[in-house]
């Protein structure tokens, strides 16, 4: 029942619609009360609800397909393991680790490499991007490098990095640093270039010095772009670290699935892939939360 029906001043000409239950709306089986009042729904993006029920259908069908195909022997365990095999392998991995390394340590080392790469990339890239956005000299000096490196996928650098630095930790972090660096330079530069001139003018007219304009206007104004850069760099580095570990590494989720493949441990490979997906998703979610917490003014200039 809606509130209006209790208000004596409002006479409803038609009986109020029955409100669907919260569960139905959560499942996407019913539109919310606002969408239900719209007559134009096709083509209105906000009229498309979560359709959550269908998501559950998809998940259940996939799991069912997995279960049926493996337990009826439609696919060989070497190509795709059974539920039970993955379950018992997971218990074993949690219990004993993989190749004398705990499972969480494999995950931790990969995450640690990504964070280091993004950290150093931001440390160098943000000041460089700022310089490029603020000074013609800096722009001229670094533009050829940035524009040349921008389209090169970080993975294409792996052979060179191995030649120069071998396959130890430094090599991996250098690769991730490079992957993050150019993303961060470009993000910081476009953050600086995106400042509205009226804000800069206002600050100077309020008596701010050049340095104060940089610190109090240009920097905070660029933060949303910089944050987007960090988020993108995290995503790219996560993809790159897994690939780099596939090539050469003792530890890390990427190396885990590569080594497991060599021993035909398909169940471990599948577990690794699921972990990679979950961590990538978690990174994205954490970054979005941090963003709305740290930069609430984003897009509201």
């Amino acid at each position: 029942m809606t509130d209006q029906s209790n208000d004596p001043n409002i006479k409803l000409v038609a009986a109020p619609q029955e409100t669907p239950s919260a569960l139905m709306m959560w499942l996407g089986m019913a539109d919310n009360s606002f969408t239900r009042q719209k007559t134009v729904k096709f083509g209105d993006p906000s009229a498309v609800n979560s359709g959550r029920l269908w998501s559950f259908v998809t998940i259940i069908l996939l799991l069912l397909l997995w279960w049926v195909s493996t337990s009826f022997g439609w696919v060989k365990p070497i190509y795709w393991p059974s539920f039970e095999a993955v379950g018992s392998r997971m218990t074993k991995l949690l219990d004993q680790g993989f190749r004398n390394t705990e499972l969480w340590e494999h995950v931790f080392i990969s995450v640690y490499r990504v964070l280091s790469g993004v950290f150093f990339g931001a440390l160098v890239g943000i000041p460089l991007g700022f310089a490029m956005g603020l000074s013609s000299t800096a722009r001229g000096l670094f533009d050829p490098i940035v524009e040349f490196m921008r389209p090169i996928p970080p993975l294409a650098l792996i052979p060179l990095i191995i030649l120069w630095l071998g396959i130890d930790e430094t090599a991996k972090i250098t690769l991730l640093f490079l992957a993050a660096l150019f993303i961060m330079i470009i993000a910081a530069r476009s953050g600086v270039s995106g400042v509205k001139i009226s804000k800069v003018h206002a600050a100077y007219s309020l008596g701010a010095s050049k340095f104060q304009v940089l610190k109090n206007v240009i920097l905070p104004n660029a933060l949303p772009e910089i944050f987007t850069g960090i988020r993108t760099a995290m995503g790219v580095c996560w993809g790159t670290v897994v690939a780099a570990e596939l090539v050469a590494a003792e530890k890390g989720v990427g190396s885990m699935i590569m080594i497991a493949k060599n021993f035909l441990q398909t169940d471990t490979v599948v577990i690794g892939i699921i972990i990679i997906g979950i961590i990538g998703y978690a990174i994205e979610m954490i970054m979005r939360m941090l963003e709305s917490w740290l930069i609430p003014w984003r897009g509201k200039g």
């Binding site: 509205k196 206002a202 007219s205 309020l206 905070p220 933060l223 003014w297 509201k300 200039g301």
Partner: peptide, 19 residues
């Protein structure tokens, strides 16, 4: 010769510091 605190300015919109 340049902007200065002696001459304040009020723009149409969007010149506030949203942060």
């Amino acid at each position: 010769v340049g902007p200065d605190a002696e001459r304040g300015i009020v723009f149409q919109q969007g010149a506030l510091f949203e942060w």
